[in-house]
Nucleic acid binder design. Structure first.
Lengths: 149, 149
DNA sequence: TATTATAGTGTATAAAAATTCACGATACGA
DNA sequence: TCGTATCGTGAATTTTTATACACTATAATA
């Protein structure tokens, strides 16, 4: 699925570049081998919940923000960050390795977020298994996890 | 200064309304007695660092986000929230009342944020005195403090 | 299989947001 | 008090972003 790959790349680009506008994104994605128009990028940005904001240098930049609106008490995020050590993908499964005993709370956060693409999660002691909708979605979900660390 | 008042009102509006676009803001501000054009609102939004983002209902909405980009370890924010009990203004001074012993860390956060309009801060045991640039700026700074709680 | 959804996209356009330019008000020095 | 600089603003415009519409491909259903 080209779409998921593009969106993963898009997140990556946004974190590593100072993207001022969508047309820049079109260009950067093209460099990376993804052909998409501004219209598509606009839709991706909406779906991924990305935002454009003024930086201190007075330039605009697209960025990723975690907790927006009433999303979730950010303490849970703190917890998540402390707990999760590694994020890996295998086929349609994302595996989180956590500090022993914290897998459950990490999973709890995931559940409360109702992240798109996730079918379900199971938490052991130091491992969370996340089942995603498809092989294509898995890297996107993983990227989302990493972006929370 | 009409500008500061407008911006304070603007923040207030944004937190209490689902503002989808700047022209809505123009209208709402007009109701509140502030006449400003879209151009001015656009500038205010840039200055205040507000953002437009897609909500879960797929509508766009302007919101305030605290920690953007590499802004500050969000733990400091947690601390700030726990510490600060009240925010008051008098002339060009904003006074924070905190839990005893925490005023210093609250002030530390403020310093690290380099918030515009603040000349300097002094922290006692349970009180932070914030000196702002002008009487007009003080309510804006206070609003910023409150928005972090 | 034929038929009907559904998702993803580009093109063209509408809509929204940012900025350029000009101007008025205020502050500051000479 | 001038002249000069700075700031905030609106009008008009440019730039950027979102979406309506049409089309294709793929999946789901009878």
């Amino acid at each position: 699925m080209a779409r998921s790959n593009r969106q993963v790349k898009l997140l990556e680009i946004i974190k590593t570049h100072e993207v001022e506008r969508q047309s820049d994104l079109v260009a950067l994605l093209k460099e990376a081998g993804f052909d998409a128009t501004q219209a598509t990028i606009s839709r991706d940005i909406k779906e991924l919940g990305l935002i454009k904001t003024a930086m201190h240098n007075k330039k605009y930049r697209y960025i990723v923000v975690e907790s927006k609106e009433g999303d979730v008490p950010s303490k849970l995020f703190e917890l998540f960050k402390e707990a999760v050590k590694k994020v890996n993908v295998s086929l349609n499964i994302v595996v989180l390795n956590t500090i022993p005993g914290t897998a459950n709370s990490a999973a709890a956060l995931l559940d409360s977020l109702s992240i798109s693409g996730i079918l379900g999660t199971v938490a052991g002691d130091d491992t969370v298994i996340i089942v995603t909708e498809s092989i294509e979605k898995a890297p996107l979900v993983a990227e989302r996890m990493r972006s929370m660390l």
